[in-house]
């Protein structure tokens, strides 16, 4: 008994972290297999042909047309890639420019109906998108926005705003009043204070909203599929077109689909890697208790 104790003490001198982590490591590793294996399968499949040999031919969809069935081809992925980017960027930009001032007003000013407004945001945030689909069809056609990506952006932004305003409000709540007071006493208007002092102080929160809404726009499939006809409006509908066989089979070899999916999530990985620190840290700070 004393032997094992001295042995442990000897270990602890080098590394005073407790011993025996491997049990938990093993458990979480096995549990994580439900994520690791499928994603690993996706990535390796992107580089293998139907017989299982390694190849890059799956990636030809980037530069060449892809045949779906007789007479129907997908154009090279460049155009849908670009429209996916612009869709996500317009979405993120409009969400941020609308969210930030509104959340500031809700967090740091008093006005008639403030409580009502806060409650309305929660109820709107809980509002189901699917319930409005029928009205959207009618609305977009009356506004002559059918088949235009910008119409879908409007819908998505409007549905996205209540939640993002509530999240952003939480960030504004945590900014100290001193700098706002100082700025007002120094002679700046409330708006100028917001712009020059509060927005810089809320940068981490704003980047969370920016990244989240960008990713949400980037990954949007169903609304685009519903309101935009054609196969290559964005990357998601490009992939959707490859998947939609009548009998549940894919229209292209699965390796090509895997490659397209992998390609589609590369920007997500990059965005997450770049913003990981702020995203993880700030979400902790912003979480309401």
């Amino acid at each position: 008994m004393s032997d094992s104790k001295t042995l442990r003490l000897g270990r602890m001198r080098d590394d005073d972290r407790p011993y025996g982590v491997w049990k938990f490591l093993l458990v979480i590793l096995v549990f994580s297999a439900v994520i690791l294996v499928p994603y690993g399968w996706l990535i390796t499949s992107a580089f293998r042909d139907t017989s299982g040999a390694w190849t890059l031919s799956n990636w030809s969809f980037l530069v060449k047309e892809t045949q779906l069935r007789r007479g129907i081809h997908l154009p090279p992925a460049i155009k849908p890639l670009m429209s996916s980017f612009s869709f996500a960027i317009i979405m993120a930009a409009s969400v941020v420019t609308i969210t930030v001032p509104a959340a500031y007003a809700l967090s740091r000013t008093e006005f008639q109906g403030r409580r009502l407004m806060a409650k309305l945001l929660i109820v709107l945030d809980a509002f189901p998108q699917v319930a409005l689909l029928t009205s959207f069809i009618m609305l977009l056609s009356k506004m002559h926005l059918v088949n235009k990506l910008i119409g879908v952006v409007f819908l998505k932004v409007a549905m996205y705003l209540p939640g993002s305003i509530w999240l952003m409000k939480g960030f504004f709540d945590h900014i100290s009043w001193d700098i706002e007071w100082a700025s007002i006493v120094d002679g700046a208007s409330r708006f100028k204070t917001f712009l020059r002092i509060i927005v810089p102080a809320a940068k981490p929160g704003i980047s969370v909203i920016l990244v989240n809404s960008f990713l949400s726009g980037w990954g949007e499939y169903i609304l685009i599929n519903l309101f935009i006809s054609g196969h290559s409006a964005t990357m998601s509908s490009f992939i959707g077109a490859m998947m939609d066989g009548e009998d549940g089979r894919y229209l292209v070899p699965p390796g090509v689909l895997a490659a397209a999916c992998f390609f589609y999530i590369i920007p997500v990985i990059i965005t997450f890697a770049v913003s990981q620190k702020t995203l993880l840290q700030v979400r902790q700070g912003g979480s309401k208790q």
Binding site: S176, D178, I179, W181, A182, V185, I197, A201
Partner: peptide, 18 residues
């Protein structure tokens, strides 16, 4: 406040961090 011709120092100093 801007038209009162006052200067103020706050407890936390409230310097603009940016």
């Amino acid at each position: 406040p801007k038209d009162r011709n006052i200067g103020m120092v706050f407890q936390s100093y409230a310097l603009y961090p940016n």
